[in-house]
């Protein structure tokens, strides 16, 4: 048997999983609960300036992109393992196309917003 080239894809999947698990809950806590509900009061203009900084835009894009790759890969194999073996090919297409679409939306968002 020959060594697989799967590591190229898997490292993206693993990076997405690690990044999502580590930092996404922090963002949800900050921007879905603490900031909107006024628990963390601060200067809104300063926050907006921070969020619009090119480095934060790049970071947000990488986070979305890798998170989507992870989700697509995980969902694909979970569905197949749950018994949808016959639909393995369409499931793979739908999952990865979803991730690509999400990445395009994320790219649009970080450039325009």
């Amino acid at each position: 048997m020959a060594r697989s080239n799967e590591p190229a894809v898997w490292s993206l999947f693993a990076a997405g999983g690690a990044l999502t698990a580590l930092v996404l809950p922090i963002h949800v806590l900050l921007f879905v609960f603490l900031v909107p509900f006024g628990v963390l009061a601060g200067d809104p203009d300063a926050l907006l300036a921070f969020l619009r900084h090119p480095l934060f835009r790049l970071y947000a894009f990488v986070l979305c992109c890798l998170g989507l790759v992870h989700a697509a890969h995980r969902l694909r194999f979970t569905l197949v393992d749950l018994g949808l073996h016959g639909l393995a090919v369409p499931i793979a297409w739908i999952c990865y196309l979803g991730a690509v679409l999400g990445t395009v939306v994320a790219l649009y968002a970080v450039i325009v917003l």
Binding site: M1, R3, S4, D81
Partner: peptide, 17 residues
């Protein structure tokens, strides 16, 4: 050993159920 363990039929077949 990595030729087998690192092959498509090796660890990469696992979907971590």
């Amino acid at each position: 050993r990595m030729e087998e363990v690192g092959s498509h039929e090796g660890v990469w077949g696992c979907t971590f159920v």
